[in-house]
Write a protein that binds this DNA or RNA. Structure first.
Length: 1080
RNA sequence: GGGCCCGUAGCUUAGCCAGGUGGAGCGCUCGGCUGAUAACCGAGAGGUCUUGCGUUCAAAUCGCAACGGGCCCA
């Protein structure tokens, strides 16, 4: 035992204690400790503190340094705001898988990552500084602005790190990769240089999504769609050479009409030329036949006449620019009709084409070498080229243009439409399409190779790659990587001011040596903006293009940037490509894609070997969680209410990882309850074990030498089977299938069954082998459980391990996470036994069902339980596990019938078959039926089975004339289970009544003990008055038994007892009045 | 409009790949237990398996279509 001074030393520190141990050569000083109620929050905090103190994470990683390598790349969360449930789920998945891998002996590399550049942060900082446009930033100074952005990113990283750590997530938080670091920037630069070398980098005019407020191109992924009201106008373009004839187009962006160059029609649609009359005035219109009705209705024409039908491909006409009088430049272009497959049978079937303002338009323009006319500037205002509209904001110009067209009589109809339109996801400004000069990666050139690489990657689930990702890549276009902003990785492209030669700087060193700049401490803007180099072709000055990278390009290089490549050329050879990544399905077009693209450019192969695609977190309704809907649940809220462990197991077990997760508090609560039960299971035996000086260091030998009961062997088998199940599920990253069986094991096998079975054994005071067998078995099971749970529930398993293992073994590993994954011990697995026990449990359930039918409480023993079976295994089960069955059903006797045998105590009711009896016996049928009612059913049934007939007084009946039904005696109830039926005989005997009433008395005294808050071992004096003489005598016979159960040093029972004590209560037991008093 | 995924009891879900009487948990109702006790256990009720068509002796399961939800794209 501990001496108090030793104990104090223990408190001071583990190491100190070890020292003492060695000095004094003490043994068996390590002991289990009792545990209080489950308090998730303080338990988790203590574990976090413990991990910090011993630097558990680093030790675990160091410990496996010789193991097979497992390279994991963390998809970097963007450092803005706080983490949400989806991010939490994401990191919990990562943590569980990496903990599992680590226990399996892998040398895991897992730097946490942070995505810290880009427009979202710029917009936030602009908000804080009250800026409205890029001019404000220029005025404030790019240097100051970038400093603010950096500060913002770093402070948010710190906040978010804490939140992830609160979830118990282990990644390398000490040395995360950050996109704002110079070595990271170099990885991006190096990649672009590679692209340039492979001729995959291209500068070109393209139509891009443009935010007129942010004055930059934005990625498709940065466009957020919402319902808005826009003009819906039908415009008549005057056809050249045909008097009073118009081709009719429809648009929601009248502001693009000044940039109109062409009209597109579908080659295989039928078009009509029609004479249409409105208010007596006639004109000729060209539209798709299918849509004629719509156009006539829109234009309120009263009558019409189809003059001609033309196939789209034959429609060769030219038209006059509708706004030529306002936009002089328009008159320099020729306007014609072209064919395009993207034309749909909607509105008019003729599509207005402005190659400067639409993606399809642009491509059609390129195909036919049309002018890419774009009279709109970066600020969303018309330029000089727009003639009279110059200086006008395009969105505001809609009205003016509609008026102008109406005035010139070209407006066929003008209305409003509500449709989805793209906005800048950060500042909510409606985007416009602009043809601008941008830098591109020619993804279209390497698409086929990418599709081949996708097939080499292992996708979980398979369709994430074969269907979803492949489909996205097939449809992908060249990647616009340039942004006209400030906070990002500067594009390392230098262009010769004189000859236009392009060069890409791959590293800081290269830039320094080419430019002669000695001091360069930061690779951001504005520090690299004014560095010039000498053109290697013409020796003139080269200047950097002012753009920064699309932020998706940052994370795209993560798999080598996290290995500090190209600065460190050695590490990448040992680790790359990544063994595993996992992100949500939104990242199909995001990180899965951007990484694949960048890696194809750099290395010509996929940067990852396997990908787990997970789902999204939705609210209870299945709707997206969003601030505007007010349905956001934060991980912090869940942790505060129910603990991180509950959240972890909830998100892991609720769904298949790839399905979306509908968050529900009730379900998290259920997980929490399960953990509470686990905790109770764990702490329940501790006081007994401690009292008995139980020391399980020799658990392995003891399990071999002690007389284990079948139930002990059963739970040992169950826990080993559980380990196997978890392994199989984890091999396919089926986290739900790994975690659900753990919960089931805890609830069903451990709590509801094994603990109930061994209870009486633990109360036994003698130190007998039977009790020890239960202790050792439970100990073994709990320790195995801590290891199998550790990847998923790292806190509670660490706590249990600390007590069960570290408090016992002086040389134990410090953390459960340092332990190796313990493969299933085959010698314990006995599937036959597991099957038998299943049957016993079914029988117990059925018998409790039967008891309920006759309202007989479990406290009252029953005379016997009879089991009828459909197959042999039931008999084997009942025979081998009879003691378990007897105890759990509280039966005096178990009778097992042979398979197929009916119980001889059952009566048989003979049901006459009138249809057969009538014709056979005619008017004597009545007599036969009357006789059957009182006849010996059993005899008739037996005879029918043996001879097929039976002789009654009234005549001989045959088998077809009767059917049989079992008759259950009144004191017997039955219930069926999957492989048979159970009969519970509740007939009362004197002994059963005595025991039943005694247990009623015991229960009430225990209840009163609790009310008085007595200690378990405290003795009492008890007096029991039972007015009913007969019951009083019955109970009196069990006086010693009762006294022992309630720890009474004196006990009086009788009809005339004077009841006294600290607490006196009246009870009504099954209509028998009792008055009980107890006192110290 | 397109691609992928999902749609089973009031709620959350298993079963679907390999077709043959739909299993759980929560909640609800009733009961039990009282040396895990601000715990625990049992029973019961509750399902047109989103809808329609098809394949088949047989469909929650396979096919087609529609409807609803999610992500992504246009």
């Amino acid at each position: 035992m501990f001496t108090s001074s030793l104990f104090a030393q223990y408190q001071k520190g583990f190491n100190c204690f070890i020292a003492l141990l060695t000095t004094y050569k003490l043994e068996i000083i390590f002991m289990l400790k009792e545990a209080g109620q489950y308090d998730a929050k303080s338990l988790e905090q203590n574990i976090h503190k413990f991990w910090d103190e011993i630097d558990a994470y680093s030790k675990v990683r160091e410990q496996r340094i010789k193991g097979p390598k497992f390279f994991f790349v963390d998809g970097p969360p963007y450092t803005t705001g706080r983490i949400h449930l989806g991010t939490a789920w994401n990191k919990i998945i990562k943590d569980s898988i990496l903990r599992y891998r680590s226990m399996k002996g892998f040398n895991v590399l897992d730097r946490a990552g942070w995505d810290m550049h880009g427009l979202p942060i710029e917009v936030k900082v602009e908000g804080v500084l009250g800026f409205k446009s890029k001019k404000d930033i220029e005025k404030y100074g790019v240097e100051n602005f970038v400093a603010k952005c950096k500060e913002f990113a770093l402070s948010h990283r710190d906040e978010m790190t804490l939140q992830f750590q609160n979830l118990g997530v282990w990644l390398n938080w000490h040395d995360p990769y950050m996109t704002l670091r110079d070595e990271y920037i170099e990885a991006a630069w190096w990649t672009l240089k590679k692209a340039h070398e492979k001729k995959l980098l291209e500068k070109g005019l393209r139509v891009v999504n443009w935010c007129p407020r942010c004055e930059t191109a934005i990625a498709d992924s940065e466009v957020e769609y919402s319902e808005v009201s826009d003009p819906s106008v039908y415009i008549k373009f005057p056809v050249v050479g045909q008097e009073n004839t118009f081709i009719v187009i429809w648009t929601t962006t009248p502001w693009t009409i000044p940039a109109n160059i062409a009209v597109a029609v579908h080659p295989s649609f039928e078009y009509v030329k029609v004479r249409a009359v409105k208010n007596g005035k006639e004109e000729f219109l060209i539209v798709a036949q299918e849509l004629l009705k719509n156009v006539l209705k829109q234009g309120r024409y009263q009558e019409h006449e189809i003059l001609e039908t033309i196939l789209g491909e034959d429609l060769k006409i030219a038209y006059k620019a509708p706004l030529g009088h306002k936009v002089p430049k328009q008159n320099e272009f020729s306007h014609n009709v072209y064919l395009a497959d993207f034309v749909t049978a909607e509105n008019t079937g003729c599509v207005h084409i402005a190659p400067g303002h639409g993606i399809d338009d642009f491509e059609l323009g390129m195909k036919h070498k049309l002018p890419i006319f774009c009279p709109v500037g970066p600020d969303g205002k018309y330029t000089e080229e727009a003639g009279q509209y110059k200086g006008m904001n395009v969105k505001e110009a809609n009205k003016t243009i509609i008026n102008d067209l109406t005035e010139s009589g070209l407006m066929l109809a003008s209305g409003k439409i509500t449709h989805r339109y793209g906005n800048c996801w950060r500042c909510k400004t409606p985007i416009i399409y602009l043809a601008t000069e941008q830098w591109f990666l020619r993804i279209t050139d390497i698409k086929d190779k990418m599709l081949d690489e996708i097939k080499k990657v292992k996708w979980y689930p398979d369709w994430a790659g074969s269907a979803r990702f492949a489909d996205w890549v097939k449809g992908s276009r060249d990647w616009c990587i340039s942004r006209q902003r400030y906070w990002g990785i500067p594009i390392p492209v230098w262009v010769c001011d004189f000859c236009g030669e392009v060069e890409v700087m791959g590293t800081m060193e290269e830039l320094k040596s080419r430019s002669g700049v000695k001091e360069l401490t930061d690779l951001h803007r504005p520090y690299v903006d004014n560095i010039h180099i000498k053109c290697s072709k013409c020796e003139q000055r080269m200047s950097r293009v002012p753009d920064v990278f699309d932020v998706w390009f940052d994370s795209a290089v993560a798999s080598w940037a996290t290995l500090n490549y190209p600065r460190d050329e050695k590490t990448i050879k040992e680790w790359w490509p990544a063994d595993f990544i996992t992100e949500g399905h939104d990242q199909t077009r995001g990180w899965f894609y951007s990484q694949m693209g960048a890696s194809m450019v750099s290395f010509g192969k996929a940067p990852y070997k396997s990908v787990l695609m997970h789902g999204f977190t939705l609210d209870t309704e299945g709707k997206k969680m969003s601030k505007s809907l007010g349905n956001v649940v934060s991980p912090d809220e869940v942790i505060n209410k129910l603990g991180a462990e509950s959240l972890r197991l909830y998100v892991l077990s609720q769904n298949a990882p790839w399905d979306d997760l509908k968050f529900g508090w009730d379900e998290v609560g259920t997980v929490n309850r399960m953990l509470n039960i686990l905790w109770n299971v764990y702490r329940f035996p501790l006081p007994y074990m401690i009292l008995d000086n139980f020391n399980p260091v020799d658990v392995n030998e003891k399990l071999d030498s002690l007389p284990l009961r079948l139930e002990d062997k059963w739970i040992l088998s169950r826990v080993q089977s559980l380990i196997k199940k978890v392994e199989v599920s984890m091999s396919e990253y089926n986290l739900h299938k790994a975690t659900r069986p753990i919960s089931e094991f805890i609830l069903e096998d451990l709590s509801r069954w094994y603990i109930q079975l061994i209870r009486p054994r633990t109360w036994r005071e003698a130190n007998d082998p039977d009790k020890l067998a239960a202790y050792y078995t439970l100990y073994e099971v709990l320790v195995a459980l801590t290891k199998v749970m550790a990847p998923f529930a790292p806190h509670i398993s660490e706590e249990m391990y600390g007590n069960l293992v570290r408090n016992i073994h002086p040389d134990a590993l410090q953390s459960v996470h340092m332990c190796n994954w313990q493969p299933a011990k085959e010698k314990f697995i006995d599937t036959e036994l597991e099957k038998r026990m299943d049957i016993i449990r079914e029988i117990v359930e059925a018998s409790s069902n039967a008891r309920q039918k006759l309202k007989r409480k479990l406290r009252w023993p029953v005379k016997r339980i009879v089991v009828s079976s459909k197959n042999e295994i039931v008999n084997e089960a009942v025979l081998s596990l009879e003691s378990v069955l007897k105890e759990q059903t509280n039966a005096k006797k178990i009778v097992s019938l042979k398979t197929g045998e009916t119980w001889d105590q059952l009566g048989v009711e003979v049901l006459p078959n009138h249809a057969a009896l009538g014709p056979a016996f005619k008017k004597d049928a009545g007599k036969v039926i009357a006789e059957l009612k009182t006849a010996d059913g059993r005899a008739i049934k037996k005879s029918m089975l043996e001879t097929g007939s039976f002789e009654l007084k009234a005549g001989v009946i045959t088998a077809d004339m009767v059917t049989f039904k079992d008759l259950i005696p009144p004191a017997i109830a039955s219930a069926v289970f999957s492989a048979g039926e159970v009969y519970v005989d509740t007939e009362l005997t004197r002994e059963i009544e005595a025991e039943g009433y005694s247990r009623e008395v015991i229960r009430r005294i225990q209840d009163m003990r609790k009310e008085l808050d007595l200690a378990v071992e405290e003795e009492i004096k008890a007096t029991v008055e039972i007015k009913d003489d007969r019951v009083a005598v019955l109970v009196f016979e069990k006086k010693d038994f009762i006294a022992q159960e309630v720890r009474a040093r004196s006990l009086e029972i009788g009809p005339e007892v004077e009841v006294e004590g600290d607490l006196v209560k009246d009870w009504d037991v099954e209509d028998v009045k009792m008055r009980i008093g107890i006192g110290r």
